[in-house]
Design a protein around this nucleic acid. Sequence first.
DNA 1: CTATTTACGTCAACTATATTGACATAAATC
DNA 2: GATTTATGTCAATATAGTTGACGTAAATAG
Lengths: 187, 187
Amino acid sequence: MDELVARKISEPPSVAAWRNAAVEAAAATGDGDALELVELFFFAYRDFVGDADRLLENYGFGRAHHRVLHFVNRRPGLTIAALLDILKITKQSLNRVLKQLLEAGFVEARAGVVDRRQRLLYPTPEGATLARDLAALQSARFRKVMDELPPAARGAASKFLFAMIDVGERERVRAHLACAKAAGAAT
Amino acid sequence: MDELVARKISEPPSVAAWRNAAVEAAAATGDGDALELVELFFFAYRDFVGDADRLLENYGFGRAHHRVLHFVNRRPGLTIAALLDILKITKQSLNRVLKQLLEAGFVEARAGVVDRRQRLLYPTPEGATLARDLAALQSARFRKVMDELPPAARGAASKFLFAMIDVGERERVRAHLACAKAAGAAT
DNA sequence: CTATTTACGTCAACTATATTGACATAAATC
DNA sequence: GATTTATGTCAATATAGTTGACGTAAATAG
């Protein structure tokens, strides 16, 4: 046994094997253009979230806090159930980060007026400021993108992103955006 | 103290406070359109990765395995360093999932020919098949999107996604895509 | 009015994915 | 021969998620 075996390095089954598989893959998926889009989407999202991550570090918060704060700020008065529906996580998972945001004074909760079991979530002024700073970073990227894109392509972005959403989720997303627009008055 | 205090529910600072903050935010970020794009990007990515997640469950793999397998399949002979550069994670983090993929027989490694310190990563036939199935799911979404988009908007998607990538990363991504295209022959 | 359902909180154990820091080894290079 | 490079590995820790079980107060159905 040489050092290669010791390090669990072996000969590949055959170069032809994976090459054939790759060609098959291309045939099965139609073309490589779609694959290229898959990768671009991955890279784009990686860099997109990176912006906010750096700011969040200063507060000891992570992406989970960001998402919660974002949606609470965007739709003040949001219920726990509505938030869970947007985030698609369990209440236990939400509760941990929400508790931290409440304790840190970035989010406040009050009992619902029509249904007192509900906790309506609101950003505090500090929370709203942080949410605004985070949103500013991310929308700055979008605005920069729109600037460097040919005018004809600009309107396509939101159509494209919306079309990427699960068909069954689109109505919900549309409703959320309408809700946010109504709440924010200027968003 | 009533039950509301016990449950850490308090009155919001004032409805006006957060409303003003939201208006400020809109003013600071220019407009709500960019904010809307931020959210659409979040929802789109959430559903996009969901496709693959469901398939990966059957193999006991997670997203981390998916990413590794994907890039190994796309660029057979990839080195550890190149993979780390793409994924932007630490070698310790990569090593855990890579070890599992090697042990499960989805990826193979062999010593580099020009530099024997390097481990060149290749998908096994099984790995290539899984990678293909995963890619098929995700590119199917993209192809469906292209179908439902007006023809004029189709070309815009890849331009848009590329523009979303950090300027300093674009050359690297471009190189990766060229590399993948050369390796896959048909992708 | 009682029974049930609903909206939420919480404890516990576990998994997946990432991090930092320190140290080891073999191969390449100066 | 000394150093740098490519990689592996051990250990501790953090973040973000899960399932399952149980509790409570308020709304609602019978």
